[in-house]
Amino acid sequence: MSALGIASRLNSPSIRRNVPFRPAIAALLVIFCACAALAQALETQIFDPATRTWVTYDPRQAVKYYRAHGQTPEEFQRRIVDFKTAEKPGTIIIDGDKHFLYFVLPNFQAIRYGIGVGKEGFGWAGIVKVGRMQEWPTWTPPAEMVERDPKAAQYKDGMPGGPENPLGARALYLYEGNQDTIYRIHGTNQPWSIGLNISSGCIRMNNDDVTDLYSRVEIGAKVIVLMQGAALYRGV
């Protein structure tokens, strides 16, 4: 129920008969719920033709769809779209809410790719730049992952690039000034995960798309990341 919904229920005569109405409590509820709504990352929904309803596109649904169709939903396929912006060609614009990455082209067009973004509490927004790029990057799991996951522990000194590597075929390292943000735009060994809030803050693309993007991007390219309810802001 929305904050306004809770407030109106507290105001309704049927509730007031049994519960003494306290404006302060209602106000706090409204503020709490509004903040909770703002902090919550948006998610993808998929239309279920069997029930004719929209359902949450979670990892289970994503794997099911990918197995059935051999690809992600059409909206997440690479395409050229109209994109009126004052940002110059070569700029990368990430719409984390809709799970799209735009590469700005001349003449008010852009290439749109589907992406996966940070899970709840890991989403971020800001203005950064591409600091460096790498083909078939090495993946080094963070220390806490090495501690809790025996599979990750075997790669504590780095997993060589390859099809099983979670960073996939290419990585674009995002910098704030001259400092590595630790966030990357990279490929994936889980192509079904495009469209999800699933990462630890990195932007993931399928390997064909990140390879295409890599071939177009120049070091120093501006990257604008838009995400409602972001847990962190960088570069602004």
Binding site: L42, T44, F47, W54, T56, L226, Q228
Partner: peptide, 11 residues
Amino acid sequence: VVRTSEATAPA
């Protein structure tokens, strides 16, 4: 086939 849980403005 897919949509976002809330309508946000296009980027």
